[in-house]
């Protein structure tokens, strides 16, 4: 499991609680003497709730078995998901992060994960483009299309050709989704991660000058990254863009 998938699993742990209660409710609703479905729902639902309750254990287990625990801990900490960790465990990873540049072991560990490998493993792009509203709309239409396609296949109306038509529409939507996602990432980036620094609004903030950053939510529940950095004469973007080695 790569680092991103691991964080996603921990970050969406509340969904397991919701799923658990939903399964328990369905189990209760379908209960009768001739139906064993409620037993499966009962066991699965209880398992989901237990997984949610043991989320701190899941975080500790992930940190212990992840090939990149420092990266995992740093992101989980910014997302506020390390609050339940035992103090000694949290202290261990915090110390590793704070002394990253002075600790030879930690430094070697970080250097073992080259950027190109990191980007490939986690399916990340260094160019971040503007959010595409149309992408959401296509995605919004894609799920009902798939649902309708399954309904058509499951029904007895096999010779109407409706399945082929709906299936074709679903495939086209899937192609549009994959193509648009790639386009949105690569065209007109607003943020670019470079070896020299972070390019944002035409200014390159060097990595050395960045002191720390926070992830917060504003009054409208929009996620905002606040980056604090020392004033080290940030150069204009053009100077950096002209150097070929600046880009990954």
């Amino acid at each position: 499991m790569n680092v991103k998938t691991n964080i996603r699993l921990i970050g969406h742990i509340r969904l397991f609680l919701l799923l658990g209660f939903l399964l328990l409710f369905l189990s209760w609703a379908t209960f009768n003497d001739n139906n064993s479905l409620h037993l499966i729902g009962l066991i699965t639902g209880s398992g989901c709730i237990l997984l949610f309750l043991s989320r701190n254990w899941l975080v500790a287990w992930s940190l212990k078995h992840s090939p990149h625990p420092g990266l995992l801990y740093a992101v989980l900490e910014k997302m506020g998901l390390t609050g339940g960790l035992h103090w000694s465990l949290a202290d261990q990873y915090q110390m590793a992060n704070r002394t990253s540049m002075n600790n030879p072991t930690w430094r070697a560990h970080v250097m073992e994960y080259p950027t190109s490998q990191f980007l490939t493993d986690n399916d990340l792009d260094t160019d971040v483009g503007p959010r595409q509203a149309r992408l959401r709309r296509v995605l919004f239409m894609f799920l009902p299309t798939i649902g309708f396609f399954i309904y058509c296949v499951a029904s007895d109306n096999l010779y109407s050709g409706m399945e082929i038509l709906i299936g074709g529409i679903a495939v086209i939507q899937l192609l549009v989704l994959s193509n648009r996602k790639r386009k949105a990432r690569n065209s007109h980036p607003l943020v670019r991660f470079m070896t020299t620094g972070l390019l944002y609004e035409g200014i390159v903030i060097s990595w050395e000058s960045i002191d720390h950053w926070e992830y917060i939510r504003d009054a409208h529940y929009h996620g905002i990254i606040v980056i604090r950095y020392y004033d080290s004469k940030p150069s204009a973007a053009r100077q950096f863009m002209s150097r070929k080695q600046a880009t990954i």
């Binding site: 680092v3 991103k4 964080i7 996603r8 970050g11 420092g70 990266l71 740093a74 992101v75 910014k78 997302m79 990253s100 540049m101 970080v110 250097m111 994960y113 950027t115 990191f118 986690n122 990340l124 260094t126 971040v128 483009g129 503007p130 959010r131 595409q132 992408l135 996602k181 949105a184 990432r185 607003l190 943020v191 991660f193 070896t195 020299t196 620094g197 972070l198 944002y200 609004e201 903030i205 990595w207 050395e208 960045i210 002191d211 950053w213 992830y215 929009h222 996620g223 905002i224 990254i225 606040v226 980056i227 604090r228 950095y229 020392y230 004033d231």
Partner: peptide
């Protein structure tokens, strides 16, 4: 000390992706 705020709702990314990139690049090149 200066600061800049990046609104993720205007970008084609997620908070996990963005934080991962920040942590990795800072640890590698910072």
């Amino acid at each position: 000390m200066q600061q800049t705020a990046i609104d993720l709702s205007t970008l084609h990314t997620t908070k996990i992706d963005f934080l991962l990139l920040l942590v990795h690049f800072k640890s590698q090149y910072g």
